[in-house]
Amino acid sequence: MVALPGTPPLVVLAGGLGSRMLHHTRSTPKALLPVGGKPFLTGLLCAFRDRGGIVEVVLCTGHKADQVRDEIGDGSQLGLRVIHSPEPEPLGPIGALRHAADLPDAFLLTYCDVLPTIDPRWFAEQARSSGCQAAMAVGPAPTAAEANVRIRGGKVAAYAKKPGPAGATDCDRGLLALEKRTLDRHPGRDEQEFYGSLARDGELAAIPVQDPVVDIGTAARYEKYLRFAETI
């Protein structure tokens, strides 16, 4: 089981350069791209607060970290307690977790470009009862190219990107539960090496969800989401 507290803290990976959408992120970090008149990260944090009761947040930042700090501050204006953990240099997403001085012993993990579509309370309970020290939300991949997870016996048996594992039909949904100690027991600065190691050792539970992942991680996806947001 992932030893999450009753109301788990949230860690958000928000340090990437946004290289797949540079004409949007040269002057603005990806986490602060506007959606519906407010930064995407603000909406993400409010969704986890409202749906999951989450208060404690660690932001792992990098590219233009000062802008994120200026916008979010200590989180008090959002009813949150936010700690900023800027990278001294690009460390990769898992490297950023290892660098975070105030990383909780167990936490939910998400990305600054993924729209929350999964109930955090439900997911945390599934992770607690999983029998593993880590858990990943998974679901059917929208396209074969996006399949990066092979599942067997309620666990992620293999994780890889471009190409995905042979026989994979699912993908991760951008929400995980981790224990800090797994960072010391498994190698890797990026998701492929770290999640792949967890999977090989049978330590990564697969939590199936039907909610489709919505992300703004590329220019095309961001622009598509902006058009969608204008209609609601």
Rank of each mutant, 00 (worst) to 15 (best):
S27Y: 05
H99G: 08
R81F: 00
H23D: 15
A106W: 01
L91Y: 07
P39Y: 07
P142R: 12
H186Y: 15
T169C: 13
V35H: 00
T218S: 15
P165V: 11
A96I: 01
L198D: 08
L183I: 07
R152Y: 02
A127S: 09
A14E: 05
P212N: 11
A206G: 07
E87F: 02
P116A: 09
I151N: 06
Y195M: 15
L33E: 07
T218A: 10
L226I: 11
Q133E: 14
D66A: 15
T182G: 02
V68H: 04
F228I: 10
G6C: 03
L226F: 00
D215Q: 10
D50Q: 14
A160M: 05
V12D: 07
H23M: 09
M21F: 05
G188S: 09
V68C: 07
V57P: 01
D105P: 01
A206F: 05
P88L: 13
K162A: 14
P86H: 07
R121A: 02
P140F: 01
S76R: 13
M1G: 13
G73W: 04
V2K: 01
E191S: 09
P163T: 09
E230N: 12
T231L: 10
R98L: 09
N148I: 10
E71P: 03
P163L: 11
S19I: 12
C46Q: 14
I207E: 03
A177D: 04
L17Y: 02
C171T: 13
P120G: 02
T143V: 15
L33V: 10
Q67T: 09
G16I: 03
D211L: 05
I94N: 04
T7K: 08
P116I: 11
A144R: 14
L204W: 00
A14W: 04
V11S: 07
L176P: 00
A147I: 05
D190P: 03
S76A: 14
A199N: 11
R121V: 13
A147E: 10
G139H: 01
P8S: 07
Y225A: 10
L33C: 00
